[in-house]
């Protein structure tokens, strides 16, 4: 019996040991590499805004510095007596307004894709996700594909999903507000007690990724950390059947 269960920590051990290799992919002080389908759109919007704001920033600051140097107080210089300029006001109202309105419309599609247009349950891999101080609980339908039955599989802090298939999460919380955050998938959704809020993503590649909590949930907030394991469909099936077997074994009088 002991031998059999000994394999569990050993597995987790290899997971942790590969941590250093895993960490090696993070080097840049910048956005972590995106691995979700809609993430590219988020990143694109980010870079567009970055470009616009950078240009505006340098224009404004350069103008400011130029004026400060050019119009510094000097002997015999007299300041202009001007109260404003009507056309200028209109120009610098209309141009930023146009940019902002364009931005507002530009990113609507991406927002709708992420937060409004969910995949149908039959096409997706569905996981009930629940936060509690200070763990993420994941509930899978199990072999019978039905939630709320005896063969449901529960894992703590370990989320197992297939690659290249939409994953539909039904996010809730048992106690306080948490926020389910997958940095590399550009996905964040608060987990609110009393509500079941859907969220979805579609992984682009296999691997292990961080699951974080982004909303202050108490003293353990800083390490309410989970792991997202993305497998190929066949590896996932193996993993899930393993887990299902363990679930069956749990029916021991204790």
């Amino acid at each position: 019996m002991i031998k059999k269960f000994g394999i569990i920590p050993a597995l987790a051990g290899t997971l942790f040991a590969s941590d250093s290799a895993w960490a090696a992919k993070y080097t840049a002080w910048w956005l972590p590499d995106n691995v979700s389908t809609f993430g590219t759109q988020v990143d694109k919007t980010f870079y567009i805004i970055l470009a616009i704001t950078t240009v505006i920033f340098f224009l404004v600051e350069a103008t400011l510095l130029t004026f400060l140097i050019k119009y510094r107080n000097r002997e015999g210089q007299k300041a202009k007596f001007i109260h404003g300029h009507h056309t200028l006001e209109i120009v610098w109202t209309i141009i930023p307004a146009a940019i902002l309105v364009w931005l507002a419309f530009y990113q609507r599609g991406s927002w709708a894709e992420i937060k409004q247009n969910f995949p149908a349950e039959k096409d997706a891999f569905v996981v009930e996700t629940s936060g509690q101080q200070f763990e993420w609980h994941f509930n899978y339908a199990g072999p019978d594909q039905q939630f709320g039955t005896a063969d449901d599989i529960e894992t703590i802090n370990q989320l197992h999903v297939p690659v290249e298939k939409p994953v539909l999460l039904k996010i809730s919380s048992k106690d306080v507000i948490h926020s389910f955050f997958l940095p590399e998938f550009r996905l964040k959704q608060d987990a609110v007690p009393g509500l079941v809020i859907p969220a979805w993503f579609k992984p682009l590649k296999t691997g292990v990724f961080d699951v974080a909590c982004a909303e202050l949930c108490g003293l353990g907030h800083y390490r309410m950390r989970g792991f997202l394991n993305v497998y190929t469909q066949s590896d996932l099936d193996t993993k899930l059947s393993e887990l299902a077997q363990e679930t069956e074994e749990e029916d021991i009088w204790e």
Binding site: L31, Q41, V42, T45, F46, I49, L50, I52, T53, I56, F57, V60, E61, L64, L100, L103, A104, Q107, R108, S110, W111, I114, K115, S179, F181, P183, R186, L187, K188, A214, E215
Partner: peptide, 24 residues
């Protein structure tokens, strides 16, 4: 000059899809 930075960085958050990532 600093308010300019604070104002411009606000635009990132106003964009709902970018906010998904940078919120909190």
């Amino acid at each position: 000059s600093m308010f300019v930075i604070g104002g411009l960085s606000g635009i990132f958050m106003a964009a709902t899809n970018v906010d998904i990532y940078i919120h909190d």
